[in-house]
Amino acid sequence: MAMLFVEMQTHDGHEGLGLSYSKRAGGPGQFAHAAEIAPALLGEDPSDIAKLWNKLCWAGASAGRSGLSTQAIGAFDVALYDLKARRAGLSLAKLLGAYRDSVACYNTSGGFLHTPLEQLLVNAAASVERGIGGIKLKVGQPDRALDIERVEAVRKHLGDHVPLMVDANQQWDRPTAQRMCRIFEQFNLVWIEEPLDAYDHEGHAALAASFDTPIATGEMLTSVMEHGDLIRHRAADYLMPDAPRVGGITPFLRIAGQAEAAGLMLAPHFAMELHVHLGAAYATETWVEHFDWLEPLFNERLEIKDGRMIVPTRPGLGLSLSEQARAWTREKVEFGTRP
Rank of each mutant, 00 (worst) to 15 (best):
E260R: 11
L42I: 14
T115N: 15
T284R: 15
A124S: 15
A125M: 03
A209C: 09
L297C: 06
E152M: 05
T222W: 01
N123F: 02
D306T: 06
W293M: 03
A145P: 03
V224I: 01
S223N: 10
V190A: 14
S109A: 03
K84C: 04
H227S: 05
V139H: 11
I73P: 03
H201L: 12
Y238F: 10
E44S: 09
A327P: 08
L274T: 01
V6P: 00
L41R: 13
V122H: 05
T108I: 13
F5P: 02
P163L: 01
S322Q: 04
R232Q: 12
A208D: 02
P241Q: 09
T250S: 11
Y238N: 04
G97H: 05
F335Y: 14
A198Q: 05
L95P: 15
A153E: 04
Q9S: 14
H33R: 11
E331Y: 14
V6H: 00
A271F: 04
G27L: 15
I135S: 06
Q171C: 06
A124I: 13
E193K: 07
V288D: 03
H204N: 03
S109N: 03
R308G: 02
L17V: 09
P241S: 05
I73C: 09
A63L: 11
L4M: 14
D237F: 01
D48E: 15
P241V: 10
T217P: 03
M165Q: 10
E334P: 08
P339G: 01
K156Y: 09
Y21M: 15
A75I: 10
A75T: 08
G18F: 11
Y282L: 12
A153K: 08
G318S: 06
L319A: 11
D101G: 13
K156C: 11
Y282T: 07
P28Y: 14
V162P: 02
L83I: 01
T337I: 08
A145F: 05
A243V: 07
L4E: 14
